[in-house]
C-alpha cells in the first residue's frame, strides 16, 4: 500500500484552497540504476479531486511530473467541515485515496 497523501484544504475568502503532496517515485522509464539497468516507468497517470461528492479537478499526468508530486488549486464554495477526497491511479493500476476536512 503506498504511503498516504498529505492534504491541506483551507478556506481562503470564498474559495477553498487545496494543497496535496503525494508519495510516489514517478520513474520516467529513461533513467538507469547503479548496475546500468533501465528503471521501468512507474508514474501516476490520473488524479481526481472531489469536494464532498462533486468533482472539482481531474488531472492526467505523464512521467515529467516530479517525484513525490505536489499540486495546488482553488475551487469556489466549500465550507468548514466539508470533505475533500483525492484519488490517484498509477500505470501499474495501483491506487490510493485520501481525504481531508476543509478547515
Amino acid at each position: 500500500m503506498p504511503d498516504p497523501m498529505k492534504i491541506r484544504a483551507n478556506l481562503v475568502g470564498d474559495s477553498t484552497e487545496v494543497k496535496v503532496l503525494m508519495s510516489h517515485e514517478m520513474d520516467t522509464g529513461l533513467a538507469k540504476d547503479s548496475s546500468g539497468k533501465v528503471i521501468p516507468a512507474w508514474f501516476i497517470q490520473k488524479v481526481t479531486v472531489l469536494h464532498n461528492d462533486q468533482q472539482v479537478l481531474y488531472a492526467q499526468w505523464g512521467t515529467a511530473v516530479s517525484k513525490n508530486p505536489f499540486m495546488s488549486f482553488k475551487f469556489k464554495g466549500g465550507a468548514k467541515g466539508d470533505k475533500v477526497t483525492i484519488t490517484w491511479v498509477d500505470n501499474h493500476n495501483e491506487t490510493r485515496t485520501d481525504s481531508a476536512v476543509v478547515g
Partner: peptide
Amino acid sequence: LAALFEIPTGTEPAITTRVKM
C-alpha cells in the same frame, strides 16, 4: 506533455505543480 488539468465550472483556472526538465 507533462500534465493536463481539466477544470470544471466552479474551480479557479489556476494550478501549481512541480515538473521535471
